[in-house]
Design a protein around this nucleic acid. Structure first.
Lengths: 139, 139
DNA sequence: ATGAGTGCAAAGACTTTGCACTATA
DNA sequence: TATAGTGCAAAGTCTTTGCACTCAT
């Protein structure tokens, strides 16, 4: 089953309607080879109202189909989240590429920090900024 | 030496001018007992133009006198950074309090993750969301 | 058929910019 | 006194909302 099919199923299962605009957004997201901005997504879908793109991305975030990628400069991008699995991001400040990674050790360290502060942890985010392997090879 | 004095020195040392508005912003920041929004800061400084508040906060971020605190919902707050030392945040989703903490173990885990991905690390951010000890005691 | 979802345009929230004026160094 | 910094208002961005219409269920 394709990721788009999984996502349409998820929409249906949760009681949301499977509309043409939502399908189009899901397909565009599945076809994106890197995290995107709302503007980029909207430009790729000229027949769909921008408000609908905003509304759909908001919905997909709630369903964990899409996740926010906060950039170092305060900007935001979005990306399809891999089956809702928790992960972190490696963000290249040179080419803008964003790589997901999971690291149980890191998650454990975060949990230990919370416990040490008597903090009841609900969630967390961790973004690593720097240069990706490809950009390191360039001058 | 007070934190405000340290900051004014830092401004002067880097060639920026010590103006009355900048001093006022620094004092307001030093007096804040929790991370603030631009609006809150601006409201506390009615005689200072909002644009100047924005410009000053931007400058103070560059000088590591102030740092951004990204919220779970995408909002942003700012806080005086403790002598530029690297730290993370515990953000209470109930009362909005933000607590700084440092944890070398967490930093090490982050570095290991970067190394494992052949990523050249420049910086990182980690925010933990949940309930602070005080809010846990409430119903 | 019925109410969730849509598109459009308008409104909102937040941030930056242009420019003449002020005040620091 | 030379020029960084300021205040104001205007202009940008980006995002949400109101409302009548459409279409999935």
């Amino acid at each position: 089953m394709s990721t788009t099919e999984q996502s349409t199923d998820r929409l249906g299962d949760t009681g949301y309607r499977l509309t043409a605009p939502r399908r189009a957004v899901l397909e565009a997201i599945a076809g994106a080879n890197r995290p995107f901005t709302i503007e980029e997504l909207s430009d790729r879908l000229p027949n769909i109202g921008r408000a609908t793109v905003f509304r759909t991305i908001k919905l997909l975030q709630e369903l964990d189909i899409v996740c926010r990628v906060p950039l170092e400069d305060g900007g935001v991008r979005y990306e399809r989240s891999r089956s809702g699995r928790h992960h972190h991001h490696l963000i290249c400040s040179e080419c803008g590429s964003v790589t997901e990674f999971s690291d149980p050790t890191l998650d454990e360290a975060i949990e230990r920090s919370a416990t040490a502060a008597s903090f009841e942890l609900d969630g967390h985010s961790a973004e690593l900024y720097g240069r990706c392997p490809t950009c390191q090879r360039l001058p």
